[in-house]
Structure formats: C-alpha cells, structure tokens
Simulated scan of single mutants.
Amino acid sequence: MKFVAFERAKQGTGASRRLRNTGKTPGIVYGGSGEPQLIELDHNALWHALKKEAFHSTILDMELNGKEGKVLLRDVQVHPFKPMVLHIDFQRVDAKTRLHMKVPLHYVKADESQAVKFENCVVNQVMSELDISCFPGDLPEFIEVDLSSLKKGMSLHLNDVTLPKGVTAVTRGKPNPVLVSVVVVGGEEAAAGAEGAEAAPAAAAPAADAKAAPKADAKPAKKK
C-alpha cells in the first residue's frame, strides 16, 4: 500500500492541536540510517487506510518530499471517543535487517471439518495474531491456517502449522501455544436433560390421577 506524507516543521501540543483542526494528523518516522523526522498526513485518507488489515501488517510505500521509502506502521493513538487519529508512528525498513511483527491469523475451512460438520462442535480461536520474525522481503500479510482436519477433542498447536518461507514464530514462555481448540456444543447434554425432565412428570401423572380418583367418586355425606 502507498500513502503520501508531508514534512512537519513544528512540534508540541499546541502545534499538533492546530494541525488536527485543519484536518491533518501529526506523525513521526524513525529508524534505519536516517534521523527521526516529523510528518503530517491527511486525516481522512489515513482514517480509511487504518480500516484495512494490510495497512497494519505489511510494508508500506511512503512518499515524502517526492521520494519513496519503505516503512512499517508501529503505533497509532486514537481519540478515546471521537473518530480521530491523534498521532501515528512509522519505522523505516532496512532490507537487511530482520523485522519483529505481529501478523493476523486467518482460519479457513472450519465448516468442512469433521468436528463442526458431524460432531456438533465449535472451533474456539485462542489466538488471532502471531508474533513473527523475518526479513522485509518475507513478511506475509497474514498467515492462513487450515482447520479442515479438526476432530472432536482436538486442539491445534503452533507446531501443527506450516509457516511461510523465511518466517519464524516468536513465542515467550510457551514454545508450542494452542491456536484453536474444539469445543462440544452443550446442545446434546441439554437435549438429554430436557428429555429426562419431560419423562419424570409423565411417570408421576398416573399416581396423581390415582389419588384424585376417589375424591371424584366419593358421594357427599348426608345431613342428619
């Protein structure tokens, strides 16, 4: 994805507030061999770009002062209740330096699995993104995970997934974390309980009728 940034001369709270009032968003670019540089971006264009997953997880082409450079989105500050981006950070990308990024996990074909299709189960997603390390040229937009082989009682771990070429998972504490787990829907147990509940009153009904019968047949006592 490509976006256009403009050089920003002033910094500080007051300058940033005035910039936002004109429909711009203050930001900064850092890293690589260059010095940190203050920038500004068109707020509306940035707001729409942030809604795209690729803007968060891929290398971006930034045009600044007529020159293009490769950057990564590193931080976004958003207003707590207004649809407004307060500040944004980008990091320059060096082709020879490994990146440390979080990329989204796309789970596919869960509906085709035996667990979902025949065993009345649902797939519980434990992780929605994965921390990875790779060179810029190997950075994937997302990692696709095939769930078609899931069965009742299974859990899919990180080691069960084939990562793209050049990509290494970064795990902390758990070398083989669970990505998804298969959970049995409570409908079967609930249905069994409901059948038992219906059977109990039915069995008790004759006894209740038996007690009520003599009262129905009894004749009222004669008055003396």
Score class of each variant (00 low, 15 high):
96 K>C: 09
9 A>M: 08
224 K>M: 00
142 F>H: 15
223 K>G: 02
150 L>K: 01
140 P>R: 03
174 K>D: 15
197 A>W: 10
183 V>I: 12
105 L>V: 12
128 S>R: 14
164 P>D: 00
145 V>H: 03
201 P>L: 14
83 P>W: 02
205 A>P: 13
82 K>A: 14
51 K>F: 08
196 G>D: 14
40 E>K: 10
57 S>C: 08
142 F>R: 15
186 G>E: 14
143 I>D: 09
216 A>G: 14
214 P>L: 12
171 T>N: 05
203 A>E: 15
11 Q>G: 12
61 D>W: 05
46 L>Y: 12
146 D>V: 11
150 L>M: 08
158 L>C: 00
188 E>D: 11
15 A>P: 07
191 A>E: 13
9 A>S: 07
118 F>L: 15
56 H>T: 02
43 H>D: 01
174 K>V: 15
6 F>K: 11
201 P>K: 15
35 E>V: 13
42 D>L: 06
190 A>C: 02
9 A>P: 04
200 A>T: 12
29 V>E: 01
109 K>H: 15
57 S>I: 02
44 N>I: 14
28 I>M: 04
128 S>Q: 14
212 A>V: 10
189 E>R: 14
17 R>A: 08
116 V>F: 04
199 A>C: 05
217 D>C: 08
147 L>E: 04
193 G>Q: 12
11 Q>E: 11
145 V>A: 08
205 A>V: 08
97 T>P: 01
109 K>G: 09
28 I>Y: 02
223 K>R: 11
189 E>W: 10
168 T>E: 12
91 Q>S: 05
173 G>L: 05
74 R>F: 02
46 L>D: 07
162 T>F: 09
39 I>K: 02
212 A>T: 09
197 A>P: 08
131 D>Y: 05
92 R>G: 00
67 K>G: 03
168 T>K: 09
144 E>D: 09
135 F>R: 03
103 V>I: 04
184 V>N: 00
166 G>R: 01
138 D>R: 07
31 G>S: 04
16 S>R: 14
46 L>Q: 12
120 N>V: 09
196 G>F: 11
9 A>W: 03
20 R>S: 00
26 P>T: 04
126 V>L: 05
